[in-house]
């Protein structure tokens, strides 16, 4: 692109930024009205979890999270529809192989911890899923062609698990007369944990599959045995 045009775009963008800065300044100096934070913190004992962010994600605004999982699934379907995955990397040298052997189980363990701790402290399904996904990325870099994911059919089940469990629980609650994704107070904690577990597995599998970058390859060569734990990555 030529220099004059990029300069012109720069000037226009700067003017836009000044306008936005002015708007933010006005908004911040105005008297703040009632905030959602008060309401969110007030209702926290009713939500089944004691960490406010998890309560917002899985209880008050559960629709958001459901649709976000659907977006993730749609992106992965887009990637899969573009064709088969490129061939993986060659098997890693000893240093990376040993590191992967240590890091991958640790990442899975930390993911499980983050999932559990999300109920009352920072953590939750997204962070745990990201850790599982990065375990998959490391496996792929170390030469595992499918990033530690199971066979194609099992992968399909894994990546729809998040949306599927979410919708099933919602419909079940609606059938029982509570309304779609309105949890009864007694079972809220366990329902949220169940949804979060499914979402964690789905997010981890989807991110790892997105890193592989195409429809899953066929059966893995017998020279790279898959440890059973990898199925979760």
């Amino acid at each position: 692109m030529n220099r004059d045009l990029s300069l012109l775009i720069g000037i226009l963008v700067s003017l836009f930024a000044v306008l936005l800065l002015w708007i933010v300044y006005i908004t911040l100096s105005a008297e703040t009205g009632p905030r959602l934070a008060t309401l969110a913190l007030e209702q926290l004992p009713e939500s089944g979890v004691s960490h406010p962010v998890t309560a917002v994600l899985l209880n008050y605004r559960a629709y958001d999270t459901l649709l976000e999982l659907a977006v993730l699934l749609a992106a992965l379907l887009g990637i899969w529809s573009l064709g088969p995955a490129p061939a993986g990397f060659q098997l890693a040298g000893p240093a990376l192989a040993v590191m992967a052997r240590w890091i991958v189980p640790l990442a899975i363990l930390t993911g499980g911890y983050l999932l559990w701790v999300g109920g009352h402290a920072p953590g939750g399904a997204f962070q745990a899923g990201a850790l599982l996904g990065s375990a998959g990325v490391i496996l792929r870099l170390a030469g595992h062609p499918r990033a530690g994911l199971p066979s194609e059919e099992a992968q399909r089940w894994l990546v729809v698990a998040g949306v599927g469990v979410f919708v099933l629980i919602g419909l079940l609650l609606a059938a029982l007369g509570y309304g779609f994704l309105t949890y009864p107070k007694a079972g809220a904690k366990w329902l949220i944990l169940l949804i979060e577990t499914a979402a964690t597995l789905a997010i981890g599998a989807t991110l790892a599959a997105a890193y592989v970058g195409g429809r899953p390859l066929g059966a893995a060569p017998p020279s790279t045995p898959t440890p059973t734990e990898d199925a979760r990555a």
């Binding site: 920072p122 962070q127 990201a130 850790l131 990325v137 890193y211």
Partner: peptide, 22 residues
């Protein structure tokens, strides 16, 4: 905002960065 910080470090910088590096 520790939740968001964790997610950004793991997803935004980690997985996004790995994708872009490839």
């Amino acid at each position: 905002a520790p939740d968001v910080a964790l997610a950004e470090a793991a997803i935004g910088a980690g997985i996004g960065g790995a994708l872009m590096l490839a």
